[in-house]
Amino acid sequence: MSILGLFQKRSSGAVARDRLQLILAHERAESGRPDLVIQLREEILAVIANHVAVEPDKVKVTLERGEGVSTLGLDIELPLGASAKLDAKLAAKLAEVAANKGSAKPASSKKAA
């Protein structure tokens, strides 16, 4: 790179190449498991629901694909004084998750029981 290059803004073509390389690497890695995020969310919620009544609508899921890693963020609103009572819809969903898993994880099998 020339001295001038240090002061030059990166060309848009180079930005395009970097963006494509990053997103394609993620898409290739994700291609086998398109529903991974949904499954992770359901199972994490199941664990939390053991202790707190969580409103499924009050869960914000973010994903940031970066160099070599993805960051999954879950923003879950925990109501004050919430009991461990489960909302019926969520319970049904959890049972479904547990059934799909067969030899279920401890959290979901407890729910299904």
């Binding site: 963006r19 990053l22 993620h26 995020v37 899921v61 994903l63 694909r65």
Partner: peptide, 9 residues
């Protein structure tokens, strides 16, 4: 739109 890294759903 430059949002490809943030798509979840």
């Amino acid at each position: 739109m430059g949002a490809e890294r943030r798509v979840v759903y």
